[in-house]
Design a protein around this nucleic acid. Structure first.
Lengths: 207, 207
DNA sequence: GACAACATACCAACTGGTCGGTATCTTAAA
DNA sequence: TTTAAGATACCGACCAGTTGGTATGTTGTC
C-alpha cells in the first residue's frame, strides 16, 4: 500500500491545489484549506511537499503538463493551413470557456499578479509556463505570416504574445465584470484582428 | 493637532494602501504593513477605517478618483477628431508606462483576481472602477464609429471593453515575463487593430 | 471638559511548519 | 520461504509567530 497511496495522496493534494489556488489565489489559500479539500492530513501534506511554496510550484508544473497535453491533442492541429489553424486555435479557446469563471481561467495569470514581487520562484514559473504555451503557437504564426503576409512589418513573436495578452486580459475583465461573455467577445476581436493581419489573397478583404 | 492630523493620517494610510496593495495584493498585505509604510499606529488605523476590507474599498475609491482626474485632464481630450483622439488616448497610456512594474500597473486588475470569489464587495468595486473608465472612453469610440465606420458590425461598447482587455492583459504578461516592453507592444497592436476598424476614407489603408 | 485624533498594550484565532509515532511495503540474507 | 531491517506513507497533537481587531489610555483643541 506504500507507493500505492503515495500517488493517491500526492495527486489529491495537487488536484486540490489546482482548484483552490485558482479560486482563492496563493496567499488566501492556507495549507489547511488544501488538506481539507484534498481529504488529507497535514502530516501527509508536508511529507510530500516541503512547503506551501513548493506545492504551488508543483501545481504550476502540473498545470503546465495538463494544459500542454490538452492543447497538444486539440483538434486545431488537424488544420493544414496555418492561418486557418491559428483561427481554429482561437475557436478552441472559446470552446474552453464553460462553467463558472474559476473553472476556465488561467492558473498562471491568477497567481502571477500576487506572487510578482514577493515570490520570485512562483512568478518565474508562471512566466515560464506562459512562454511555453506561446512557443507552441509560434511556428503556426510564423508559417501563416510567411504564407499570407511575408512583407508585413509585425513580428510573429509579437503576435503570439498578443494572443496571450488578449486571453489573459479577458479573464481579468470577466472577473471584474463577473461576466464570462467578455472572453468570447475578446477572442472575437482578436480573430478579427488576425484575419486582417493575414489577408487572404485574391479574395476580398474582411471588413 | 486634532482635526489637523486627521487628514494627514488618513491620507497617509490611503497613500500607503495604494502602493502596498499594488505591490503585494490584498491578502498578502497586512494591516501592520500599511501602518508601518504609512508611519501610523494601529490605533490610528482603526480609528479611520473599521476593517482591512474597508481600507481596500477606500483605496479603490481613491484610485478611481485619482485616475479619473488624471485621464480627465489628459492631453488627448484636446484632439478634435474622435478617431485621432482614441489613438491619442492609447499613446497617453503608453506614456504612463514608466518606472517599475507595480508603479504603472492597475490596482483594480491586481486586486480583482484574488478578491474575486472571496470578497464580493472588493470585486464589485474593481468592476465598477473599470466600468467607469470604460464609460469615459465610450463617447469617443461611438463618435469615431459614426464618422469612420457607421455600417461596421462591431459595437462601440465591445471595442471600449476590448481596449481595457488588452491593457489589463498586457499588465499580466508584463508581470509574468518581467518585461514592461510587453505593454508597449500590446498597445501598438491595439492601435493597429483600431486603425483598421476605423479606416480613413479616400486615403490608402494602413497595412 | 468634551471630543476628535491619536498611542499602547493586548488578545483570540489562525498560520505555516514540526515532531514523535504507527502502519504498510520492499528487499535481501538465512 | 521466512523474516528481520529499513524505507515509505501517513497521522494528528503541538508550537512559535502572525493576523485582524479591541480596550484603554493620552493629548491637544474648541
Amino acid at each position: 500500500m506504500g507507493p500505492n497511496r503515495n500517488k493517491q495522496a500526492k495527486q489529491k493534494i495537487l488536484d486540490a491545489a489546482l482548484r483552490v489556488f485558482r479560486e482563492q489565489g496563493y496567499t488566501a489559500t492556507t495549507v489547511d484549506d488544501l488538506c481539507r479539500v484534498a481529504g488529507v492530513t497535514k502530516g501527509a501534506f508536508f511529507h510530500h511537499f516541503e512547503s506551501k511554496e513548493a506545492v504551488a510550484l508543483a501545481a504550476i508544473e502540473y498545470w503546465n503538463q495538463f494544459t500542454g497535453a490538452l492543447f497538444e491533442q486539440a483538434p486545431y492541429w488537424q488544420v493544414e493551413d496555418p492561418r486557418a489553424r491559428l483561427l481554429a486555435y482561437l475557436d478552441f479557446r472559446t470552446e474552453l470557456v464553460q462553467g463558472k469563471l474559476p473553472e476556465f481561467t488561467c492558473l498562471l495569470g491568477t497567481l502571477v499578479q500576487e506572487t510578482f514581487g514577493s515570490h520570485p520562484a512562483l512568478q518565474a514559473a508562471c512566466g515560464g509556463g506562459m512562454e511555453g504555451h506561446l512557443q507552441t503557437l509560434l511556428p503556426t504564426i510564423q508559417a501563416a505570416k510567411a504564407k499570407y503576409a511575408p512583407k508585413a512589418k509585425w513580428r510573429a513573436e509579437s503576435l503570439a504574445l498578443h494572443t496571450q495578452v488578449v486571453l489573459q486580459g479577458s479573464f481579468v475583465l470577466a472577473k471584474a465584470l463577473n461576466d464570462p461573455q467578455v472572453v468570447h467577445e475578446a477572442i472575437e476581436h482578436l480573430k478579427c484582428y488576425i484575419s486582417e493581419l493575414l489577408p487572404i489573397p485574391k479574395g476580398r478583404k474582411t471588413r
